[in-house]
Simulated assay, not measured.
Amino acid sequence: MSAVPSSPVFRFAPSPNGALHLGHAYSALLNEKLARETDGRLLLRIEDIDQTRCTPALEAQMIADLAWLGLDFTPPHRRQSDHFDDYQQALDRLIGRGLAYPAFMSRGDIRAWISDQERATGKPWPRDPDGAPIYPALDRHLSASEREARIAAGVPFAWRLDMAAALAMVGPDLSWVESGQGPSGEHGIIVADPGAWGDVMLARRDTPTSYHLSVVVDDALQGVSDVVRGRDLFFATAIHRLLQHLLSLPAPRYHHHRLILGDDGTKLSKSKGDEGIAALRNAGIDPVTIRNELGFR
């Protein structure tokens, strides 16, 4: 794997599963600004592991929007769907070290089991930093023969990280350097707490990877030295630092920036149909106006 280079390398890594909005534009323009100020390079990565929602048409629109904004990326562009073998190799290493297990519970199974537990105990099930229920991890304790029998019978499964086993392999000093700011003003040396996420997914049932696994592999293979992204991913950095440690990958510097909010005060989202860059362009707004509005004059 590549070491962190002496010349800074930044990356903008959107997913072509909807229209780019002002939040994406802000992140891309901030990466461009920091790369220019440090005489670094800016890479474009297409994060399209979700082959159901990501389409060639949306990717083409996204690239056109970025070009219209005046962004210039150092080629070649990396498309994740072209590199599933890289993620499979990383996953195999974790499996080989006993750090990953096949997880057979479907989303419906998880919801039903947690609902039963909450009714029985009268207490809410633990949530991760994003507010999602932590995986119950019942199948972590299955015997090897039971796992093999289920797989042989064609029971669908994902791969999840055995968090307890993983944490046993790292010391208490797992951290990252934060030059931006976390949701509560965190800055400087941040102590990572990956255990707060439980047994995170490493590979989906229908895809040989997950966001967490692919992003750390990509950053290492592309020699990314500085990860600049939205504050909503601040706590997920703990997972990324853990995977980097387990896979012996270099640790980039991190900068989490403010989020661009909509008129209702909530984060812009593709899924909510927030007005995209293409719509603004079609409305006659020019890229200079957008840059000025976002603070890049």
Results as ranks from 00 to 15, higher is better:
Glu186Ala: 05
Gly195Tyr: 12
Ala152Asp: 13
Ser6Phe: 05
Leu71Val: 14
Ala220Cys: 08
Arg231Pro: 00
His212Cys: 02
Ser15Lys: 01
Ile63Ser: 06
Phe12Arg: 01
Leu91Met: 08
Asp65Thr: 02
Thr74Val: 14
Lys270Gly: 03
Gln51Phe: 08
Gln61Thr: 06
Leu249Cys: 00
Ala149Asp: 14
Ile260Phe: 04
Asn282Lys: 02
Leu99Tyr: 13
Ser115Asp: 15
Tyr26Met: 02
Leu34Val: 08
Pro76Ser: 15
Asn17Trp: 07
Leu94Arg: 08
Asn17Gly: 11
Pro183Tyr: 10
Ala283Asn: 13
Ala153His: 03
Phe12Met: 07
Ile239Cys: 07
Thr121Ser: 14
Ala19Thr: 09
Ile95Met: 06
Ala283Leu: 06
Pro129Asp: 06
Arg291Glu: 05
Ala158Gly: 09
Ile290Pro: 00
Gln181Pro: 00
Leu221Pro: 04
Arg11Tyr: 05
Lys270Cys: 03
Pro252His: 07
Arg97Leu: 09
Asp173Trp: 04
Gln89Pro: 11
Pro8Asn: 09
Arg229Asn: 13
Pro252Val: 02
Ala158Phe: 10
Val224Ser: 00
Gly295Trp: 10
Ile49Cys: 05
Thr209Val: 14
Leu243Asp: 06
Arg111Pro: 03
Tyr135Trp: 12
Ser179Pro: 05
Ile134Val: 15
Ser225Asp: 11
Val288Tyr: 03
Phe235Gln: 01
Ser184Asp: 04
Ile110Trp: 07
Val227Gly: 00
Leu99Glu: 04
Leu246Ala: 03
Asp193Arg: 15
Leu268Met: 13
Leu22Glu: 11
Val4Tyr: 04
Ala192Phe: 03
Ala57Glu: 14
Asp263Gly: 10
Pro183Met: 11
Ala283Tyr: 03
Ala28Leu: 05
Leu99Gly: 03
Thr289Trp: 01
Ser179Leu: 08
Arg150Thr: 07
Pro172Tyr: 11
Asp72Gly: 08
Arg79Gly: 05
Pro76Asn: 13
Val177Arg: 10
Ser184Ala: 06
Leu142Gly: 08
Ala278Arg: 02
Val4Ala: 12
